[in-house]
Structure formats: C-alpha cells, structure tokens
Amino acid sequence: MPRVIGIDPGTVSIDVCGIDDGHTYLDRSWPSAEALADLDSFTAYLRSGGEPDLVAGPSGYGLPVRRAAEATDLELRLAFLAGPGEAGGIGGLRGLARRLAAAGLPLIFTPGVIHLDSVPRHRKLNRVDLGTADKLCAAVLGVFEQSRRRGHGPDGASFVLVELGGAFTAGIAVSNGRVVDGVGGSSGPIGWRAAGALDAEVAFLAGEVTKATLFGGGVLSIRADATVAGADRMAMDAYLEGAIKMVHQLLVSAPAANEVLLSGRLAAHPEVRGRIGDALARVAAVRPLSGFATIAKQGAQ
C-alpha cells in the first residue's frame, strides 16, 4: 500500500498524520508559527519515515484535485485568498505549499466543499467558503469512521459534522455518503477566535475588512473586553447557540442524518460537548469524531 501524509494547517497548530500500509507512522502537531518559521525541520519530518508516495498538502479554500507542481499562480491565489502584504490570517501558508512542492514532495491540493458536484449549485450562490479543504477532509474521516463503526458501506453514512476549531466554527452535511452542503467558518456562526459571518452593514460601517478582521471578534475577543458586562457567559452562549442553529440549518439538506460528529480543538471542551449534546438530544446523537491518530487533528487524518 502507498505511504501517504495528510497536513492540516490550522490557525493554532499545523498537524501531520502519515499512514504506511494501513498503519499510522507519523502523528504530530506543531504551533503554526513555529512550523512556518522552520520549514526545513518540517520538511525533514515529512521524510523521516521514508519518502512518501503522496502528500495531501495545505489547500486553503481548496482547488479541484491538482498536483502542486502544476498549480498556477492564479490557482494559488484563489486557494489561499491572501492579498499582497496581507499579515492577517495564517500567514505563510501559500509559501509553505510552494516550499513543500519545491522540495520534491509529491504534494497535491485537495478541494473544498464548494468544488464538489454533489453540492447543488443553488447552495453555492454568493458563497466562497462552504468549508475549507481541511474541513472536507474531516468529513471524509467521518464517513470512514461511521461506516466502520456501524458496519455499512460509505454510501450508508449520513451525519452533520460540526468543526469547532481554534478559530472558526464550521459545519458539513453528509447524506448517503455524499457531501451535500456546508457552512464555512467565515460564513457561519461565531467561532472561538473568529467572528464568523459578518452582517453586511457591519462590514459597510467598518469601511475595510481585512484578513485580520476575519480572524478576530470571536469568543476570546469578547471575553477580553472589560467594558462588556457578563462577557464570559454571553460569549459562550453565542458560541454554543450558533453551533446548534447551524446543525438545524444543515439538517434541511441532510434530513436523514441521525448523528452529529464533533471535531476540532474545542470538541473536547466539557461544557461545549455537554451543552451541544443536551440541546440536540431529541434530534440526533452527538459524539466526537475520534479518528485513528493520537495527536494529529481530524483534518490531517
């Protein structure tokens, strides 16, 4: 079997999972800033268990499956959507992708939710972010995990994935093994660090919306504002209620889904898991997306 590697480039950490002959042989997480500052060490780790046959690289908002060596500058700009000199967001991801490809690694870019033919065209109107490439990878892990646990084929998998990342909250609807809808982190509910979808009038009043704007305004920003009375509880209520509303929204596209799978950094938070589970108890079973790695996040698996 081939030796393959998945890379999940998150706001807080960059995670790596490698599989060789069905067994996990790479399983690690770096702080994002540390990994991007020492690309030689990062690249060396990818080769530490032998030369890989395929590397699913950092793909941002995604591209139709493409070898990194064949990707054009325009395609890279569309995948990472970072303007010249833009300091916000996860700086350096496009450079990381270029560096890995230049190092001779068999890197490919993978799609985001918006690239899938299984998602009806009307659900893509006025949207860019229906779920980034790493969120889609987590949904594929969900299909694998649910199919194995329940003993049916991939076409029997139906669920809503809720990705509770270190910055963004996102969701993906899967019906009969096919991704049919998604809510992206920049177009969805409030996240742990990120504001989520901005009211168009808020964007107008702001005058300028930068990448840094998209990565702020979440739970941590609200909690840090000493002028807001009861900020901690208000921020947590907004965060959890937003995720719960998103699940109900996605169930419109996947009415047969009877499970909600929680993934991402905040999925292990006791209050988060408990309150989401209680709120959705009459709708679907809520369970963590466990995967098979010990350290690497679900998107890398």
Rank of each mutant, 00 (worst) to 15 (best):
L105R: 07
G196W: 00
R233K: 12
L251P: 12
G207R: 12
G166C: 01
K211H: 14
A281Y: 13
L161P: 06
L141F: 06
G153S: 13
R233C: 00
G156F: 07
V55T: 07
G49N: 14
R127L: 12
A293Y: 01
G165A: 04
A102H: 09
L46F: 08
R127N: 04
A56C: 14
A56H: 13
V247W: 07
T43K: 04
V65F: 14
A224I: 00
G50W: 11
V209M: 10
D117I: 00
G10K: 07
R94W: 08
R287N: 08
D8S: 02
S187F: 08
G196Q: 00
A138S: 15
T227S: 15
R77V: 03
H152Y: 12
V219P: 00
L136W: 00
A101V: 08
A203V: 09
L105W: 06
L46I: 07
M234S: 10
R28M: 04
D181Y: 08
T43S: 14
D117N: 10
I14G: 13
R66D: 01
L78W: 06
D117H: 10
L78V: 10
A268M: 06
A173C: 09
L39C: 06
A224F: 09
G188N: 05
P120T: 05
G88V: 04
D15F: 01
I90M: 00
G18C: 10
